[in-house]
Design a protein around this nucleic acid. Structure first.
Length: 284
DNA sequence: CCACGATCCTGCTAGC
DNA sequence: TGCTAGCAGGATCGTG
């Protein structure tokens, strides 16, 4: 599940390698629904001959800008990967879009689950409007207690629901929400409005910390995440809460802080993992 | 404002 | 061994 750190690593990898490269062709679309506002034909017509001007990230979106202000906005959802390959390299299964460059390399969008989407924008203002309608502030580099307190102000939803809401805060998903709440010792179901100022400060710093650590470890390859070169990250070896609750087949793993078995609960149809001793529910 | 359920997809695995 | 049912989950949308 690519969240902010995984998208950041991919963006950095691609930035190094495709900025300045010129598009030779667009092909391979076998799943039109992945292009909600364009088609393979339009992408080909618009992109061929243009050079990549920049590769950026906003929230979990990867942005590839081209000369002339055209931009692609990629959301990988659960299983999508963006791989830069030699044009002669054997094709990956589940490739749904290929952007070929004139230097014999190509960017491949590979997505087994077909949840990923790519939008085309013709001008920077269109892209900005799309992102602004969906994304709250970026947690990196400098989310602090004051900012988070302001965001939380007047919100009575459960804190984890807010962390998953991209319009509340951009880039945090299920995995890093669980990790940040564990680190800050806050129960996922706590109504946001009941968080104390010290708890909010701890949470802000925990969010920054778990994201920065994951970036240093080149992302969490929990299921299918790979970077632009097709390499796995390392952060899955350092998770404290996520994936450590009991499952149908596995007993709960201990909390690394206090050895209490990690618990699991379903919130917004997603698993939440937390330590019942370190992360007290408190009053509701 | 907030919660919840449905939707979209398919690889994986438990269990028969 | 081979099949099937159930699970996972980000964003969006409709309902209460």
């Amino acid at each position: 599940m690519p969240e902010l750190p995984e998208v950041e690593i991919t963006a950095r990898g691609l930035r190094e390698r495709i900025v300045g490269k010129r598009v030779a062709g667009v092909c391979g679309v076998d799943w039109p629904r992945m292009l909600p506002n364009t088609t393979e034909e339009e992408l080909h017509a618009v992109l061929v001959g243009r050079a990549v001007a920049a590769v950026d990230r906003r929230g979990k979106y990867l942005l590839a800008s081209f000369s002339g202000g055209v931009a692609l906005c990629v959301h990988r959802k659960m299983s999508g990967n963006l791989l830069l390959r030699d044009s002669l390299a054997p094709p990956e299964p589940h490739t749904h879009l290929v952007i070929a460059f004139t230097n014999q390399t190509e960017l491949r969008f590979v997505d087994a689950r077909k949840f990923g989407r790519i939008h085309l924008f013709h001008a920077p203002a269109e892209l900005e409007a799309f992102l602004d309608a969906r994304l709250g502030p970026e947690p990196l580099p400098d989310l602090d207690g004051t900012t988070l307190a302001r965001l939380v102000q007047g919100r009575r939803a459960r804190i984890k629901s807010l962390l998953l809401d991209q319009a509340f805060l951009a880039g945090v998903g299920n995995l890093y929400a669980d990790e940040a709440l564990w680190e800050a010792r806050i129960h996922p179901l706590r109504p946001a409005s009941t968080l104390t100022r010290p708890e909010i400060a701890r949470l802000a710093s925990a969010i920054r910390h778990v994201l920065e650590q994951a970036i240093q470890r080149r992302g969490t390859s929990f299921s299918s995440y790979l970077d632009a070169e097709g390499l796995a990250g390392q952060n899955q070896d350092y998770l404290n809460a996520y994936g450590r609750g009991p499952t149908r087949t596995q007993p709960a793993q201990p909390c690394p802080r206090c050895d209490t078995p990690i618990q699991r609960l379903i919130l917004a149809q997603r698993s939440s993992h937390f330590c019942p001793r370190c992360q007290k529910q408190g009053r509701r």
